[in-house]
Amino acid sequence: ATRLKFAHPAPDTDLSHKMALQFAEQVKTGTNGSVVVDVFPNGQLGTDEQMIDGVRSGIISFTLVGLNNFSGMLPASGSFSLPFMFPDRATAYKVLDGAPGQSVAADMEEFGMKSMGFPDNGYRNITNNRGPIRVPADLSGLRMRVNNSKALNDLFQALDANPQQIPVAELYTALETGVVDAQDHPIWVVEAFKFFEVQKYLSLSQHAYSALALVMNLESFESLTADEKTVLVQAAADAVAFQREGNEAAEEKQIEFLISEGMEVNRDVDSAAFQEASKPVWDKFIEDNGSDMIDAIQEASK
């Protein structure tokens, strides 16, 4: 049998892991055991970037990481995580499964990867210790940990927060001691990484959508038989559908849990004001990367 390695960063209690296991099971039964997938959760085989390198060189067969990690290779893919790109998840799914997503998938092949679909990572929301974030001015002066996305750094700089680079591993302590007062992540991360223990306010700003990308080493995909390929593609599609549905459903439960742990959740966010503030970020992004992908996304969103 062909043995393939599936590595992902999420804890084994997370939906991503259930999705990976379901995929592995379906591949095994569908191919009558001729393809076996071993799942390595928890970042055991490295950080997001390392796993992508691993998939590209073939030492890992699959990984499931945030789509934003690919923006170094595919700058246009940064369009998907621009602030306020998608009004709701349904639109995001339509676009990711449509022409724009397929064009990213085609570009991935240049880098030795086969795209197997885009599961849901949720919207990014802001947590902090000062107070609820309702209008842009509420961010003013907050020291905020931001990931390595240029657009998000630009956004929070424009909102007069003070964006800081802190590795995720050190973020809990940084929030605890007050090196930074705020951070933004999808809600499941706030739960899994225990940020609720050191953060008081969760504001559902939904300022950027984040998709996951399930990618496979292109060569090992090509080396499979036609039947096996069909099974893998179908299993991936089923796994993505399962994950999207489960993730959306889980979010409300996660919010309830965070409230029960003492977080104050604020749903009253002036989205229009934040969107207005994010316009210059879009302009800068277009200046750097062109507007083709953005246009395609907006076309497909209709």
């Binding site: 970037e49 390198d53 590209r56 170094g72 290779m73 996305s149 240029k150 750094n153």
Partner: peptide, 19 residues
Amino acid sequence: TKQVLANWNNISQLTGLPK
């Protein structure tokens, strides 16, 4: 060396340097 060759076009957003 293989990684060097594979990552010339992989540009970090924050530093602008290839991986």
